[in-house]
Design a protein around this nucleic acid. Structure first.
Lengths: 211, 211
DNA sequence: TAGATTGTTAATCGATTAACAATC
DNA sequence: TAGATTGTTAATCGATTAACAATC
């Protein structure tokens, strides 16, 4: 809550904050509104209203007695808490279908993320542009990260290449990896890895489709 | 545990089971082994060993005294529990980068999922093939699902089209939707929706990259 | 047998929900 | 003022971890 000590928000809280943010963005885009109650958000997202108030409290956003919460203030609070207001740059390694999808996605800027370059080992792709990003050789990956102080690497290579890529970007100094390859990466403790394994979703779906 | 009453596994358990399965598949592919201890799996996946034993117990897989668990038996148990042994068919709606990535992914068969057709509204794409799948018109979506008894629809359209697509596949009778579009779908209660919003991952990453 | 590992019960931990006085 | 909504404390719930007798 305070500005000095770090309240250390958990993963659950962060993900809920993102859901609030998306909901409020969508809602106000459709029909501008000034304030919103915790009960309203709770009903829309199937979350307990007390939870919503607690989450807002955790990021220092306070409501108004009989009225609810100021939408703008909430959104600004979430942006600051999640760090959307502090833009950061990333590179994408692997320009297959998935890499291309990410490179083409226009929504990242909203969250402070700017993808500045792509890397691929295929000679034919080097020098081309994918979604406004230049595709560079794997050899230039490490120097590029160093030179530009890139903090996030997005890995969309096949599983077989992922660990090698991870080793390189880590030694070049990134602080986080967004891993879309279906493999478990081994990295030093100080590097944060977010896995986006599609198979986790599949496990739940397959289970639900059983008969 | 028993075969009659449904033990109803929670989402957490299902996802852990999938992680065990992937780990054991990868490990045995590299070097075949007969048995494995809960402590070994636990260390590799950063999960408590007791948790591993409980999860195995929940799907009816028992270990052996001083030895550990039979790898084959564990894998078979997980396949049955998650339903990988009961193949099901799906369609992909939207053949952009992301849809193409999914259509090209060869790993789904391992999990019992077979993608049999793709659908797109772009005239130029209809009639072509993406990753061995025929691309069909949106008009043929509903009859196709009905005719083949498709139970899962994978939505990779832009957000603007997603709800319309969802309405159609629901009225055609699917039991589940795998939603990759960045929007919240409204569906009847009996339809299971798994959201794969990329923004959730971003929230955690952005927070970790703050400085 | 001795020792490592299991299966299970008990204890802990954290997250979610309920209750309610304080507030506008 | 009356009434709706907040902020916060207490209670509940579930999930994770610890402990340990049973087992091979």
């Amino acid at each position: 809550v305070s500005t000095d000590g770090k309240p250390r928000l958990g993963r659950r809280v962060l993900e809920r904050l993102m859901r609030y943010y998306r909901f409020l963005s969508e809602t106000t885009a459709r029909k501008p509104l000034e304030s919103v109650t915790s009960a309203h958000i709770a009903a829309a997202l199937d979350i307990d209203a007390t939870q919503v108030r607690k989450d807002f409290g955790a990021i220092g956003v306070l409501g108004m007695g009989r009225v609810g919460f100021d939408v703008c203030e909430v959104c600004r609070g979430i942006r600051v808490a999640l760090g959307f207001d502090q833009p950061y740059q990333a590179v994408v390694v692997g320009t297959g279908h998935l890499g291309s999808a990410l490179l083409a996605y226009p929504g990242f800027a909203t969250y402070g993320l700017e993808i500045v370059a792509a890397f691929d080992k295929a000679k034919g792709k080097i020098g081309t542009t994918v979604g406004r990003c230049p595709v560079k050789s794997m050899r230039s990956l490490k120097p590029f990260i160093r030179k530009h102080g890139i903090r996030l690497a997005i890995i969309t290579t096949p599983a077989s290449a992922a660990q090698t890529v991870a080793d390189r970007v880590v030694s070049a100094g990134v602080s986080a990896i967004w891993n879309f390859s279906p493999t478990q990466l081994v990295v030093p403790r100080h590097v944060y890895v977010r896995n986006e394994h599609i198979s986790l979703g599949l496990s739940v779906l397959a289970y639900h489709l059983k008969r």
